[in-house]
C-alpha cells in the first residue's frame, strides 16, 4: 500500500517545497531534510495521525464527513486543502475499483457534496478496509508522506536519487520515534514556512507541482 507506484496521484504534490526552492529558502539536502522532518513532526504526527485513527474507527459516512470538515477548517492554505482532497479522492478512486469495503458509500457522499475526501481520512478508511492494523496504517502513511517529499525533491533537483534514499533512511528513525509516542488528544499543526510557501505558490510562476 505504501508503494510509490500505486496510482493515487501523489507525484503531483510538493506540499510547499517547490516554492521554498524558488524562494531560495530550501536549496540543499539539509533543507529538504528539515522540511520533511517538520512535516512529519508538526503536521503528520499532530494532525494527520489522529485523523487516520479516527477514520479507521469511524462507524459510518457521517463520521467520516465530520472528520473531513475538521481537516478542512484546520488547513489554512487553499492549495493544501485542495491537495489533500485531490490526493484523497485519487486514493479512493483506485480503491473503489478494488472494491475495498466502505469506499463506495464514502465516494457517493463526496459526489453529492456531503463529504470532502481528505487524504488522512481516506487513508484511514481504505487501509482499515484492507485489513491493516492501526500501527501498519500509521507507518505506511508516515512513510508515504516522507517518500513523496523525497521524490518531489529529486524532481526539483534538490537531491540526487541516492541522497533521497539516504535521507529516507535517516527519517525512518524520526518516524520510529514519533510512532512510539502517544498522539496528542486534539489535532493541531504548526508548519508556518511551508504554509506561507503554499499560499505563495497559488500565484507563483513555478507550477510543476499542484502545491
Amino acid at each position: 500500500m505504501g508503494d510509490s507506484s500505486f496510482p493515487s496521484g501523489g507525484f503531483a504534490f510538493s506540499w510547499g517545497l517547490e516554492t521554498l526552492k524558488t524562494d531560495g529558502l530550501v536549496s540543499d539536502r539539509s533543507g529538504v531534510e528539515s522540511f520533511a522532518r517538520s512535516q512529519l513532526r508538526w503536521r503528520w504526527a499532530t494532525a494527520d495521525r489522529l485523523f487516520l485513527r479516527r477514520a479507521a474507527d469511524a462507524r459510518d459516512v457521517v463520521e467520516l464527513a465530520e472528520l473531513d470538515r475538521e481537516v478542512e477548517v484546520m488547513t489554512l492554505a487553499r492549495e493544501l486543502r485542495d491537495g489533500s482532497r485531490r490526493a484523497g479522492r485519487s486514493l479512493l478512486r483506485a480503491h473503489e475499483s478494488m472494491e475495498t469495503p466502505g469506499v463506495s458509500a464514502y465516494r457517493a457522499a463526496i459526489a453529492d457534496g456531503s463529504a470532502l475526501g481528505h487524504l488522512p481520512v481516506a487513508q484511514g478508511l481504505v487501509w482499515h478496509g484492507m485489513g491493516m492494523t492501526i500501527d501498519e496504517i500509521e507507518a505506511v502513511s508516515a512513510y508515504a508522506m516522507a517518500a513523496g517529499i523525497a521524490q518531489a525533491a529529486v524532481r526539483l533537483a534538490l537531491l540526487g536519487p541516492l541522497e533521497a534514499q539516504s535521507m529516507l533512511s535517516i527519517l525512518r528513525k524520526d518516524m520510529t520515534e514519533v510512532l512510539g509516542q502517544k498522539p496528542p488528544v486534539r489535532p493541531y499543526a504548526f508548519t508556518p514556512a511551508a504554509e506561507i510557501a503554499v499560499m505563495r505558490h497559488e500565484r507563483g510562476d513555478a507550477r510543476l507541482f499542484a502545491n
Binding site: 496510482p7 507525484f11 503531483a12
Partner: peptide
C-alpha cells in the same frame, strides 16, 4: 489544469488518477 509534478508521462500513463478525478 492538472499539474504533472514534472512528470508529463506519469500523469497520462503510470498514474492518471488526478486526470480521472478532474474529468469526474
Amino acid at each position: 489544469a492538472v499539474e504533472a509534478g514534472a512528470c508529463p508521462h506519469t500523469v497520462i500513463r503510470e498514474d492518471p488518477t488526478l486526470n480521472l478525478d478532474a474529468a469526474e
